[in-house]
Amino acid sequence: MSAYCDIAPGHPLHGPYHDTEYGFPQREEAVLFERLLLEINQAGLSWETILRKRAGFRAAYDGFDVDTVAAYGEVERARLMHDAGIIRNRLKIDAAIHNAQVIQRLRDSHGGFAEWLDAHALENAAPRDKASWVRLFKKTFRFTGGEITGEFLMSLGYLPGAHRPDCPVAIVLRERAAR
C-alpha cells in the first residue's frame, strides 16, 4: 500500500495539500473548523472528492466562520441539503452546526479550539494517544469516530504519521519544530 507521501506529490489536488497543509500545525479557528468539517464529510468518500469540493464547502459554510455556522437554522439546513457543491448528508450537516456551537463554548472554557486541543494534547505528562483522543472527541463533538478524529489530529500534527520520516515535508516540519 502506498503512503500519501508516495502518491500526493505532483498531483494537482493532493500535492499542494500534502506539501503545504497536511501535518502542519494550525491555530486559526476557521482553519481548524474547516479541517474538522472536511474530515467529517470525507467519511465514506475519497479525500480527492473532498478536495475537489473544498471551494464549495467554503462558500456553503460561509468561509467556515464558526459564529455564522453555529447560528444556522432550518433555512440554512435546507439550503445545504440542496447544494450540489458539498456532500448533502443531513447527519454531516447537523454535525457541522453542532460542532460550531461546541467550538463557541470552547472559547469560554479554554480560550478557543486551538487552546482546547493544546490543553488535551498531553495525558499523564505524555502525548495523548489516538484511542484517548477518540474518546475525548466522541464525548465533545458529533460525527467524530476513530478515523475522522485520527485524520483530523494527524493533519494538524497532534498525532504522528502524517508523513514518512524521509518525506521532504516531514523534514521541514521537524526543522520548524526544532526552532
Results as ranks from 00 to 15, higher is better:
Arg79Phe: 12
Arg77Glu: 12
Asp67Leu: 08
His82Trp: 04
Leu13Lys: 09
Leu37Glu: 03
Ala84Ile: 02
Trp47Asn: 10
Ala60Val: 09
Ala59Pro: 05
Ala43Cys: 15
Asp19Leu: 11
Gly56Asp: 04
Asp62Tyr: 08
His82Glu: 14
Leu91Met: 13
Glu48Tyr: 09
Leu45Ala: 09
Glu74Asp: 14
Leu13Phe: 12
Lys53Leu: 11
Asp67Gln: 11
Ile87Thr: 13
Glu74Asn: 09
Glu48Thr: 15
Asp19His: 09
Gly23Gln: 08
Val69Arg: 03
Glu21Leu: 12
Asp19Gln: 15
Arg77Ser: 01
Ile87Leu: 14
Pro16Trp: 05
Ala96Cys: 05
Met81His: 02
Thr20Met: 05
Ala8Glu: 04
Gln26Glu: 15
Ala95Asp: 00
Glu28Asn: 11
Leu45Pro: 02
His18Ile: 02
Glu74Ser: 12
His18Gly: 00
Ala71Lys: 07
Asp19Trp: 05
Gly23Asp: 02
Phe33Asp: 08
Ala43Leu: 10
Ala78Tyr: 00
Gly56Glu: 06
Ser46Ala: 13
Val75Cys: 03
Ala95Lys: 04
Ala59Asn: 09
Phe64Gln: 02
Arg88Ile: 01
Leu13Trp: 10
Ala96Asn: 02
Leu13Ser: 10
Arg27Val: 14
Ile97Phe: 04
Ala55Leu: 08
Asp83Tyr: 01
Thr68Met: 11
Arg77Asn: 02
Arg27Ala: 14
His18Gln: 00
Asp19Val: 01
Ala55Cys: 01
Asp65Ser: 12
Arg54Asp: 01
Asp6Lys: 10
Glu21Asn: 05
Ile40Leu: 08
Ala96Lys: 02
Ala95Leu: 06
Ala96Val: 00
Pro16Phe: 05
Val75Phe: 07
Asn89Met: 01
Phe57Gln: 04
Arg35Met: 14
Arg90Cys: 03
Pro12Arg: 12
Leu37Asp: 04
His82Ala: 15
Gly56Leu: 03
Asp65Asn: 13
Ala8Asp: 07
Ile50Gly: 10
Ala78Ser: 14
Asn89Gln: 10
Tyr17His: 14
Ser46Glu: 09
Leu37His: 08
Ile86Trp: 03
Phe33Ser: 02
Asp65Trp: 07
Phe33Glu: 08
Glu28Leu: 02
Leu37Ile: 11
Tyr17Asp: 09
Arg27Leu: 12
Arg77Gln: 11
Ala60Met: 05
Glu76Leu: 08
Glu21Ile: 00
Ser46Arg: 12
Val66Asp: 03
Arg77Cys: 11
Glu21Arg: 11
Gln26Ser: 13
Glu39Asp: 11
Asp62Met: 01
